[in-house]
Simulated assay, not measured.
Amino acid sequence: MAASNRTTPHPSTFILLGIPGLEASHVWISIPFCSAYILSLLGNCLLLAVIKTEPSLHEPMYLFLSMVALADLAISTICLPKILCIFWFKDGEIHMDACLTQMYLLHSLTAMESGFMLAMAFDRYIAICNPLRHSAILIHRAVAKIVLGVVLRGAVLFGPHPFLLKRLQYCRTNIISHTYCEFMALVKLACADTTVTRAYSLAIAFLTGGVDFILIVLSYILILWTVFKLPSKEAYLPALSTCGSHLCVILVSYTLAFLSFLSNRFGSSMAPQLPIIVANIYLLVPPMTNPIIYGVRTKKIRESVLRVFSIRGFPALS
């Protein structure tokens, strides 16, 4: 689909290019993208089903984990179908309102996912540092308030983003050199002053992902401090083993998030394809690997999955 390099100040549609310079390989690139999307759907749906059907998993940590799985499903479904349309059918046209909605949902859901990971770190901190009060502190009402607070934080803080972008003038072009509607990709198209918009975005990024990461690190420092002070650690080994899965997920998610953030903000000297590839890896890998990590490393989830398949007629693995 042809598109001019100049457009009206307020275009009704944008054109997503995919990965510029690699258009000839889009069909081949779509194979791992499609595979990752299918694995993400299957893994997260299975994880949600197991947590819902197994009463032993109705604990705060697994309830927060189910929120992470829901966020992963939503993030994948918001972006991947359109990306595959670009790769398979060269259909990159997207209405401006749909583009802004996709951008808002992507960033707000990412912030929610970060908040749920922080909630899981808080749960592990209480379980290890104050185990006798764990059930008294993280009652169902408290868990519901935490979930509501995380959702409202993501929804409200990123609420101004679509309005800040819609008021800008896009007189340069309506072509977005990206696979989806990402905030900085849209800001770079504007011919107006974007200082306020960029500053607000940076502040919100720090108040969500940045603060969450600092608090998660602090919680694990306190956990390790508590464990190292105890003369006998055998009683805490089961609790610490659940931290391993959480730490692996955090390592994957936050490493890719920071790489994507830095490459988009400060990657002007890089090859133009590299920030887009990093952003897509961040979009694809965590939703696919999170259920695998928890399924393999968390004993209660692994046993519950095997029990479900055994009940449905599959032989349980020893």
Results as ranks from 00 to 15, higher is better:
Ala2Asp: 07
Ala2Glu: 09
Ser4Val: 04
Thr7Asn: 02
Pro9Asp: 02
Ser12Asp: 14
Thr13Ala: 09
Thr13Asn: 12
Phe14Met: 03
Ile15Trp: 15
Leu16Val: 01
Gly18Glu: 07
Ile19Glu: 10
Pro20Asn: 07
Gly21Val: 02
Glu23Val: 06
Glu23Cys: 04
Ile29Tyr: 10
Ile31His: 07
Ala36Tyr: 12
Ala36Asn: 11
Leu39Gly: 10
Leu42Ile: 06
Cys45Arg: 09
Leu48Ser: 06
Ala49Cys: 12
Ala49Val: 01
Ile51Lys: 04
Ser56Asn: 03
Leu57Asp: 05
Met61Leu: 13
Tyr62Asn: 11
Ser66Trp: 00
Ala74Cys: 13
Ser76Gln: 13
Leu80Phe: 10
Lys82Gly: 08
Ile83Ser: 01
Cys85Asp: 11
Phe87Thr: 01
Asp91Leu: 07
Ile94Thr: 10
His95Thr: 12
Met96Trp: 07
Met96Ser: 15
Thr101Glu: 08
Tyr104Cys: 02
Leu106Cys: 04
His107Val: 06
Ser108Val: 02
Leu109Tyr: 07
Leu109Val: 04
Met112Val: 09
Glu113His: 13
Met117Pro: 04
Ala119Ser: 15
Ala119His: 04
Ala119Arg: 05
Arg124Lys: 12
Tyr125Pro: 00
Pro131Tyr: 03
Leu132Gly: 13
Arg133Phe: 06
Val143Leu: 08
Ala144Gln: 12
Ile146Val: 04
Val156Leu: 15
Phe158Pro: 05
Pro160Met: 06
Gln169Phe: 05
Tyr170Asp: 14
Tyr170Gly: 11
Thr173Gly: 02
Asn174Ile: 06
Ile175Met: 14
Thr179Arg: 02
Thr179Phe: 07
Met184Asn: 09
Lys188Ile: 00
Leu189Trp: 01
Val196Phe: 13
Ala199Cys: 09
Ser201Arg: 05
Leu202His: 11
Ala203Asn: 09
Gly209Cys: 08
Phe213Pro: 01
Val217Cys: 13
Ile223Val: 14
Leu224Trp: 15
Trp225Met: 11
Pro231Phe: 00
Ser232Ile: 10
Ser232Gln: 13
Lys233Phe: 00
Lys233Tyr: 07
Ala235Leu: 07
Tyr236Lys: 10
Pro238Arg: 00
Cys243Gln: 05
Gly244Trp: 06
Cys248Glu: 00
Cys248Arg: 08
Tyr254Val: 00
Thr255Trp: 05
Thr255Cys: 10
Ala257Trp: 13
Phe258Leu: 04
Leu259His: 10
Ser260Phe: 06
Ser260Pro: 01
Phe261Ala: 12
Leu262Tyr: 15
Ser263Asn: 10
Phe266Pro: 02
Gly267Val: 00
Gly267Glu: 00
Ser268Met: 02
Ser269Trp: 13
Ala271Val: 00
Leu274Asp: 05
Leu283Val: 01
Leu283Gly: 08
Val285Pro: 02
Thr289Ser: 11
Asn290Tyr: 14
Ile292His: 08
Ile292Asn: 04
Ile292Ala: 14
Ile293Met: 11
Arg297Glu: 06
Lys299Met: 01
Ile301Leu: 11
Ile301Val: 14
Arg302Ala: 06
Arg302Leu: 03
Val305Phe: 12
Ser310Pro: 03
Ile311Ala: 07
Phe314Leu: 12
